[in-house]
């Protein structure tokens, strides 16, 4: 296995050549915020929170899809990056209807955590207050589009791990939303196996278990990792 050495925020890191900057940073305990990244599923580099600076490169690069290289000097916390990250989170809060106070994921939400991490005490962008529906047609789960940040973790986990591909994205721009099946109510999608992986994958309270109330959502992220390991390494015990 060939190894690359690089520095991240001045810290020397050695890691396998096929790893990403994000993996390298995490192995060294250097935090880089992410929202669309989920261990075990493919990367989409859509949330732009993990953008980092590399010495000698003008463009910011997403740490989740950029491979490490020998001698690379990575900066993860420059003032510019901090500024942009806060704006990303502010944009997310202003485009949806994220009312933490009444959300099942309050206290257990990646978006809420991201706001704390980037130091967002308010958003400078006017809230859009879009009119979005809630789908509670599924017997066990619900989908509240108001809380969705379109990270597509549910889409990928359902497609790549469960193999059901219940979810996808419809429309364009600000009108985008997650569709179930052929734009049917979730409960009418026969492909859904009710496995609940999308609930575990969802970073916010958008996909939830029915019966959960404010702050009650729990996730079993380890289950997703277990399944990936099981497939790849044939380790079927948890």
């Amino acid at each position: 296995m060939s190894v690359r050495t690089l520095t991240i925020d001045g810290v020397d890191v050695a890691i396998a050549a096929d790893q990403t900057i994000l993996q390298a940073a995490r192995s060294a305990g250097i935090p880089i915020p992410t929202l669309c990244h989920l261990d075990g599923v493919s990367e989409v580099a859509a949330c732009r929170l993990c953008l980092v600076e590399i010495t000698g490169m003008q463009k910011l690069v997403p740490a989740c899809v950029t491979r490490v290289a020998e001698g690379m000097e990575v900066q993860t916390q420059t003032p510019k990056l901090q500024d942009y990250r806060r704006m990303v989170v502010e944009l997310l809060f202003s485009e949806g209807n994220h009312v933490c106070a009444i959300c099942v994921a309050n206290g257990n939400c990646d978006l809420q955590d991201a706001a704390i991490e980037v130091g967002m005490d308010h958003t400078r962008f006017p809230y859009q207050f879009p009119d979005r529906p809630v789908d509670i047609s599924h017997p066990q789960f619900g989908m509240d589009h108001n809380r969705c940040i379109l990270c597509t973790r549910c889409v990928r986990v359902c497609d790549e791990i469960e193999g059901a591909h219940v979810w996808d994205v419809a429309q364009r721009g600000a009108n985008c939303y997650i569709v179930s099946g052929m734009n049917q109510p979730w409960g009418a999608v026969s492909a859904c196996t009710s496995c609940g992986k999308c609930v575990d994958a969802c970073p916010t309270g958008a996909i939830f278990r029915k019966g959960e109330t404010t702050g009650e959502k729990e996730r079993d992220r380890a289950k997703l990792n277990f399944l990936v390991t099981a497939r790849e390494k044939k380790e079927w015990t948890r």
Binding site: R48, M87, L91, L92, F125, P126, Q128, I149, V169
Partner: peptide
């Protein structure tokens, strides 16, 4: 209106 909606800066930033 032509943003695909995938990344946040374009999807929400152009609206703002």
């Amino acid at each position: 209106s032509e943003s695909c909606g995938k990344c946040i800066p374009c999807r929400a930033g152009t609206v703002q």
